[in-house]
Amino acid sequence: MKKLNLIDKFLFFLNSIAATILLLAYILPYIEPKRFAFLSVLSLTVPFLIILNLLFVVYWLLKVKKQLLLSLIILLIGFNHVASLYKMSASKQVDDIDNIAVMNFNVRLFNVFKWIPDIDAAQEISQFIQEKKPDIISMQEYRPDDGLKLKDYHRFEAVGGERIKNGQAIFSKFPIVNTGSIEFPSTYNNAIFADVVRGKDTIRIYNVHLQSLKIDANSDPLKNEAAENLFRRVGSTFRMQQAQADLFLEHKANSTYKTIICGDFNNTAYSYVYKKIKGDYLRDAFVEAGNGFGRTFDFKFFPVRIDFILVDQNFDINGFRTYNVKLSDHFPIMSKVKLR
C-alpha cells in the first residue's frame, strides 16, 4: 500500500469491500431465506460483483500491481459462480437424430399491455417457434391468445385469474398422457407438469414459475422505492420462493420418470432456491453447453440469468442457446438433449 497513490489507495479500499461481499455471497445458496432473508437479497448482486471484481483485476494488471491478487483469488475460489455467469468455451452443439429440442420462454402475457410497442407478440412468437422447431415448449406468464398458432403440438395449460386469464403452459410434439398442477398458496404462480411419451420412454416435463420479484427490467429500483422497503419486499419474496420450491420438490420426489425441469425461477443461479431445486442430481443445460453471458432477463444494468432448463442423469446435453429476440422481457432459451 505504501507505493500506491491516494486514488489507488481509495480504489483498493473499494476493491476490498467488493471482494469481501462477493466472498460472502458464495455462501448464500446454503442459507435459507426464511432464516436470513436480508442476506439472501445479496444473491441478486452476484453478477454485478463478479463483473466489478474482474474490472479491478484488469485495472491492477494494467498498473502492474500485486493488489490484483485479492479479486483474482476471490474469483478463483468462486470459479463455478463465474462459469454460471459467463461461459468462455464455444457452445456445445451435437447434431443427433435422437435429440429432443426443449424451449423455455416467459412470454409476458403476449404483450397484452403493450409494454413493447408495435409488435403482435403472439403472432411473432408463433413465427419464432415455427422457425426454431422445438419438440417441447414450456411457457410462463402464458394466457390463451388466438394469435398463438402452433401446429402439431399437444397442449396443457393451467390458467386462472379474473381480469386476464394467465398461468403456465406446456406444448409437446409427443403425446401427453398425464398432466397436473402444483398449487402455490396466496399467488397465481405455480408449477405444472406433463408426462409425454417418446418411443418407449415416458418423460416428465415440469414448468416451474416461482414468485416474482416485481422489479421493472428497465428502471432503477432504488429510484422508485426506498432501499429499506426494497430489501424487505425482496426478502419476503425469497421466503415465498423457498416455500414454493419445497412444495415442488415434495411433488417431484414421488415421480419415477425421467425428468426435465424448465422454468422462470425469478432468482439467479447463485440463490438458495436454485441450489435446492438443482441439487446434486440435476444438470444445468447452460453450464454444460452454453456460451457467453447466460442472460435470460432484459435487465439493463447487468446480465441476469433467471430462466433455466435442468435435466436429470438420464439425458446427455447436446446443445444450448439463448435467443436475443425482443418479444418479452425474457429471452427464450433452448437446449437439445438426448436420452441415454
Rank of each mutant, 00 (worst) to 15 (best):
K2F: 09
L4N: 02
L4S: 02
N5H: 03
L6C: 10
F10D: 09
F10P: 11
F12W: 03
L14M: 07
L14G: 05
A19N: 14
L23G: 12
A25I: 04
I27R: 10
I27L: 15
L28E: 04
P29Q: 14
E32K: 09
F36M: 12
F36D: 10
I50F: 05
F56C: 04
V57K: 01
Y59W: 05
K63P: 00
K66L: 13
Q67N: 02
L72H: 13
I73H: 06
I74Q: 14
I74F: 07
G78M: 02
G78C: 01
F79E: 02
H81R: 13
A83G: 07
A83F: 08
A83N: 05
A90Q: 15
A90V: 10
S91Q: 02
D96M: 05
I97E: 15
I97R: 15
A101S: 11
A101M: 05
V102C: 11
N104R: 04
F110E: 01
F110T: 03
K114N: 14
W115P: 00
W115T: 06
E124C: 08
S126N: 10
Q127L: 15
P134N: 14
I137C: 03
S138C: 09
E141H: 05
K151V: 02
Y153N: 06
Y153F: 08
R155K: 15
F156M: 13
E157M: 06
E157A: 12
A158F: 03
V159E: 05
A169T: 00
A169W: 00
I170P: 01
F171I: 07
F174K: 09
P175C: 11
P175D: 10
G180K: 12
G180S: 14
E183C: 06
S186E: 13
D195N: 05
V197I: 13
V197G: 09
N207P: 09
H209R: 09
S212W: 00
K214E: 05
I215A: 03
D216R: 08
D220L: 10
P221F: 00
A226M: 14
E228C: 05
N229C: 07
R232C: 04
G235P: 04
M240Q: 13
Q241I: 10
Q242I: 06
A243M: 10
Q244I: 11
Q244K: 09
L247G: 08
E250V: 09
H251I: 13
K252F: 12
N254W: 08
S255Y: 13
S255G: 15
K258N: 12
D264I: 02
N267C: 09
T268K: 01
T268W: 01
T268I: 00
S271P: 03
K278N: 12
Y281I: 07
L282R: 01
L282F: 04
R283Q: 11
R283T: 13
A285H: 03
E288R: 01
N291C: 06
G292R: 00
G292W: 00
G292N: 00
G292H: 00
F297V: 08
D298K: 14
F299E: 02
F302C: 03
F302T: 02
D307E: 11
I309N: 10
L310A: 07
F315C: 02
D316M: 12
I317A: 15
I317T: 10
I317G: 09
R321L: 02
N324W: 03
H330M: 09
M334D: 01
K336P: 00
V337G: 10
V337F: 06
K338L: 13
